[in-house]
């Protein structure tokens, strides 16, 4: 069963020669009660996917399924369905609240919203919601600028929960936080998921955090999904060279470990994606190092669906590597 599913999502910014296909045919399915992680460099389109799914970016799709209702284009019913079931949390909680309203008032507005009237179950109060995210109920009387980043992000989650969603889209929600605070938010998200049977789309550039929280992972590059599957499979036994490069770039908490530099170049201009495989100019196993691999330049390996458990690479290796066991000892 899937809580949210979209087929062939496309988002384009601008027109003509300056047009950017920020999302270029993405198909993803969020398992009910599970977490789908979406990773990639900045500019890969992962945040645009999130914004398109909640209607903040104008996208087109072949099929959108929200809580068992199917739509073939954006329409008022589709929008209403999304509003009712899908909620969105952003990276910077300080810009997500009305600076002139108290936290309590911001949450109360969502509770009073007419969209919620059809929602099932008993309505919660702002105080209950704040308790749910482990905040002091006194926070309700405070203004956004009086709270710390971690507290605000918790309040942001509480406000999203006020809408009683079945799917939560979390866009880089821990990126701006200290590691200790991040750990707290991730634990909270895990607890809430169990308690409220939430399905979560977790968008992050941090592969370690994504691995920790996700059941499934999709890796995006230049508007497409290049590898998808179970999170262990994708991040530990990566098949796409891009995923491998991402994983290898992450610094290890291990003193004396060599600094790895899997990719020398930076992402290309998204307005002019390279022909053939979009990753070929940067690929460590592509035509740059293996000149005989001309198909990477000539043939586009395309994009894949998250349900496919596959990699969009002509030379995708099958389970070729595992992360070397780390001998780091971290006292708890």
């Amino acid at each position: 069963m899937t809580a949210l599913e979209v087929t062939d999502l496309r988002v384009q910014y601008g027109r003509g020669a300056r047009a950017v296909r920020a999302v270029d045919g993405v198909s993803l399915a969020v398992p009910s009660g599970g977490t789908l992680g979406l990773v990639g460099e900045s500019g890969s389109g992962k945040s645009t996917v999130a914004r398109a799914l909640v209607g903040l970016a104008h996208g087109s799709f072949q099929r959108l399924v929200v809580a068992d209702a199917e739509f073939s284009s954006w329409s008022r019913p589709a929008e209403a369905r999304v509003r009712r079931h899908v909620q969105f949390i952003t990276q910077d909680p300080s810009s997500a609240f009305n600076p002139r309203s108290t936290i309590g008032a911001s949450i109360a507005e969502v509770l009073a919203s007419p969209v919620r009237e059809s929602a099932s179950g008993t309505a919660r109060t702002p105080a209950e919601l704040l308790e749910l995210v482990a905040l002091d109920t006194g926070v309700a009387r405070r203004y956004p600028h009086e709270l710390s980043g971690g507290q605000l992000q918790r309040a942001s989650i509480a406000r999203a929960l006020a809408a009683r969603p079945s799917v939560l889209i979390a866009d880089e929600i821990t990126s701006a936080l200290d590691v200790g605070v991040q750990a707290g938010i991730l634990r909270l998200l895990g607890d809430l998921q169990k308690e409220l049977a939430l399905s979560i789309v977790f968008i992050s550039h941090n592969l370690a955090v994504t691995r920790h929280i996700s059941d499934q992972v999709a890796v995006m590059y230049l508007g497409r999904i290049v590898e998808a599957g179970d999170s262990e499979e994708v991040l530990v036994q990566s098949r796409h060279p891009y995923t491998r490069a991402l994983v290898d770039s992450v610094p290890r908490l291990k003193v004396g470990a060599p600094l790895r530099l899997p990719i020398q170049s930076e992402p290309p201009d998204p307005r002019r994606p390279p022909a053939g495989c979009r990753f070929h100019p940067r690929c460590p196993v592509g035509p740059q190092t293996n000149p005989e691999r001309t198909d990477c330049i000539e043939h586009d390996p395309g994009t894949i669906a998250t349900s496919a458990s596959d990699a969009a690479c002509h030379y995708a290796s099958q389970a070729t590597r595992t992360i070397a066991a780390q001998d780091t000892t971290v006292p708890g």
């Binding site: 750990a183 991730l186 941090n206 370690a208 929280i213 994983v247 908490l253 992360i323 708890g332």
Partner: peptide
């Protein structure tokens, strides 16, 4: 150090301390 999440943390591994 205990709150750092590294790539060695799988979903099953112990939650990071806060």
């Amino acid at each position: 150090l205990a709150s750092v999440i590294t790539l060695d943390h799988s979903a099953e591994s112990e939650a990071p301390a806060e």
